[in-house]
Design a protein around this nucleic acid. Structure first.
Length: 169
DNA sequence: GCCAACGTTGGC
DNA sequence: GCCAACGTTGGC
């Protein structure tokens, strides 16, 4: 059974685990641990499939922006950090035999030529329904429609259309 | 730092 | 089952 590729977005704080941290990881790959929200858990456990593509978004950052594209390289499995009392996201209620929390493995695929900020996304026609832009949206794992994906990807990969002056560094 | 929106917990 | 209190997320 083949399935069309699905598209997603995950949030991370730039001064927590940034795109750059992922890029420097072995094989540019990490396990996406620490998700402790049931809606997000369900997507990681049931809906993330190998080959799906994922926007990497910096939240609580300055500026907030989408910075690159990852690929799902391993599908949902138990988030072992929930079992370890030393871990920040330890959860005594998660039983290794019947895990409450799940994670996937993500590999950085492609850095955007230029990050696309939240402020810019809000102005782009066609993204009105994007989950990221919904008022009060807090989901750290969320679906992105194919149309939304194409619009945002285009912006990130089209240096010419930079809405703001070239950024330093 | 502020605060709105949201999810979870627990008393009833 | 309802809902107030609380903790967290995350934009500004």
């Amino acid at each position: 059974m083949t399935r069309e590729r699905h598209y997603w977005l995950v949030k991370s704080e730039a001064d927590g685990f940034s795109w750059n941290d992922l890029w420097k990881s072995p094989k540019r790959t990490t396990f996406w641990d620490g998700v402790r929200n049931y809606q997000a858990r369900n997507m990681l456990r049931d809906d993330f499939k190998k080959g799906d593509l994922v926007f990497f978004y910096h939240s609580n950052s300055d500026p907030n922006e989408i910075v690159g594209v990852c690929e799902v390289v391993r599908e949902g499995y138990a988030d072992h950090t929930a079992f370890d009392p030393g871990e920040q996201h330890f959860d005594a209620k998660s039983d290794p035999d019947r895990p409450t929390w799940y994670m996937v493995d993500l590999r950085a695929k492609e850095a955007f030529k230029r990050p696309v900020t939240l402020a810019e996304l809000r102005k782009v026609p066609g993204l009105e329904k994007m989950e990221l832009l919904r008022k009060g949206s807090r989901l750290s794992v969320q679906p992105v429609s194919k149309k939304e994906w194409e619009i945002v990807y285009e912006l990130g990969m089209d240096g010419e259309r930079a809405a703001s002056p070239a950024r330093g560094r």
